[in-house]
Simulated assay, not measured.
Amino acid sequence: MTSAFPEGFEALDPFVDWAIPTEKARYAKRVSSTMDELDAFYDVAFPLLKNGTERLEKTSMEDISEPDTRLLWLFCSLVTVAFSVEAWRQPKVPDSGPSSIDAIVEPAV
């Protein structure tokens, strides 16, 4: 079976649905997920963040491969999930009511 991610990041394959290209969609997935789901994703992805960052820093954005693009998007999701896991222990921002994030422009990849 071929991995959706670059070599060395095969452990992320069960979480390929976190490789989400837009901030709004990443936020929506976070708030619709359970803490068990967020913890499972975080526990696998966070230890790979340093190696993934080093890999992506060496990657040209002009000709980035699909596996590297998925890796980038997945780590963007990790950033979106981190505070929920590390601080709040809930998917939504505490005491925020029906707030939402509306990105006007997404970064180009």
Rank of each mutant, 00 (worst) to 15 (best):
P67V: 06
N51C: 04
D17A: 09
E54P: 15
A25V: 10
F41L: 03
D17E: 06
D43G: 13
R26D: 01
V31N: 05
E54K: 15
L38P: 05
M35K: 06
D39S: 13
R30G: 11
L48T: 00
G52M: 02
T22A: 10
S32M: 09
A40Q: 05
K29T: 07
D36H: 07
D17T: 09
W73N: 14
R26Y: 04
K58D: 13
S60N: 14
L38W: 02
E37T: 06
M61Y: 12
F41K: 01
W18D: 02
M35V: 03
A25Y: 06
L49D: 00
E37A: 04
D39H: 14
K29L: 10
A25L: 09
T22S: 15
A40H: 04
L56V: 05
L49Q: 04
F46S: 03
T34G: 08
S60D: 12
N51A: 11
R70Q: 10
W73S: 10
L49R: 01
K58G: 15
D43N: 10
Y42A: 01
E37S: 03
I20E: 09
L48A: 01
E66Q: 13
T22V: 13
A45C: 00
D39C: 10
S60R: 12
V44Q: 00
A45K: 00
S33R: 02
A28S: 09
E54N: 13
A25W: 03
T22Y: 04
P21F: 06
W18H: 01
P47V: 01
T53H: 07
R26V: 05
D36M: 08
V44Y: 00
K58Q: 15
Y42N: 01
I64A: 06
T59S: 12
V44G: 00
E57L: 11
A19G: 06
E57I: 07
P21H: 07
E23C: 12
S65Y: 01
L56F: 11
D39Y: 09
L72F: 09
A40L: 04
F41N: 03
K50H: 15
E62P: 14
T22P: 11
Y42P: 00
S33A: 12
W73L: 10
K29D: 02
G52A: 05
E57Q: 13
R26T: 09
Y27F: 14
T59G: 13
P47D: 00
P67H: 05
K24T: 15
D68W: 02
R55K: 14
R55G: 12
M35P: 08
S65N: 07
T59K: 13
T53K: 03
F41G: 00
S33K: 08
E37M: 00
M35T: 03
L38I: 01
G52K: 04
A40N: 06
T34E: 08
E37H: 02
Y27L: 12
T53C: 08
L56A: 03
K50C: 11
M61G: 15
T59E: 12
E37N: 06
R26P: 15
A19M: 02
F46V: 05
D17P: 08
R55L: 14
P47L: 01
T59R: 13
K58R: 15
